[in-house]
Design a protein around this nucleic acid. Sequence first.
DNA 1: ACACTGACTAAAGCAGTGTGAAGTCAGCTA
DNA 2: TAGCTGACTTCACACTGCTTTAGTCAGTGT
Lengths: 159, 159
Amino acid sequence: MTKTLRMTGELEPRDGWSAGASCTIAKSVELLSTRSAFLLMREAFYGATRFEEFVRRAELSEPAASARLHELVEHGLLELEPYQEPGQRTRNRYRLTEKGADLFPVIASLMQWGNRWLSDTGGPAELVHRGCGAVVHAELRCEHGHAVELADLDLAATT
Amino acid sequence: MTKTLRMTGELEPRDGWSAGASCTIAKSVELLSTRSAFLLMREAFYGATRFEEFVRRAELSEPAASARLHELVEHGLLELEPYQEPGQRTRNRYRLTEKGADLFPVIASLMQWGNRWLSDTGGPAELVHRGCGAVVHAELRCEHGHAVELADLDLAATT
DNA sequence: ACACTGACTAAAGCAGTGTGAAGTCAGCTA
DNA sequence: TAGCTGACTTCACACTGCTTTAGTCAGTGT
């Protein structure tokens, strides 16, 4: 049995579960609430793999990048992989894991929001679908394929 | 003319614009990179409007909530609105602005990610479409209606 | 007139996140 | 063998975010 609660409506008896250790939003935020973690994930999506790339492109200091990259590896968003370019010594490379890659909708929707609200010009870049060239945006859709607005959402507790 | 760049591919000449002041992801992160800001926005979506509600349900201290709510108002994600319940004095209420409400996909996709990766049980709650009762999830879709995977994305600079 | 409640603010202090400067270390390349 | 580069680490320090504790203040209800 599931109990539902209307979003943005009056505050029904949901006090219990939104708070506390079980809220997965809260847990997610713990991992990503630092500026540097977010910026590093952004660069990972943009294709950065080497330490030096992360440092330069996320514009972080080396100690900050190092600490945060370790944390992201530890939490399984990135993984360390040795590799060797011809004529170079072996190095480590940071690659997105499936768990890390699955965060992309978060980054993409944040980018979309930033482009819309924090830029006069619509932002410096946008995502396009390689297949057809059309602009890509993040949206909420139910399993029956309906696009869903905030006002049409219920929150169902999975008891 | 737009230049495109393959996501997660090799690092083409994108060094310039991802970094620096123009990146809207970076700007967005400045607003939301604190734990408390995220938690307060979550509660705003869940329907909190009063100061005391935000404090209790986001489990923040009053000073932290106060400081962050001011910041969110200042940045236009929430707005202060006086109201009066019968038999009560007038109070202020924090409401989502359009700008704030438009952040919902970010919160929703974070929740979805957390439910998938940080919980054994699939999380304590999920979003459902009021119309049909089906589970709602965040996804990337192009303007032609195609669901888009990370591997099928290009990043187009808006020059 | 007084207590009460909701909505804050002020001050003190700790922990975490960030910086710059400098040092380490491995393994090419000259 | 010596130098160079990429990938770090260590240190000292500043700043921020958050917490606890202790108020303030406005209006209601008694």
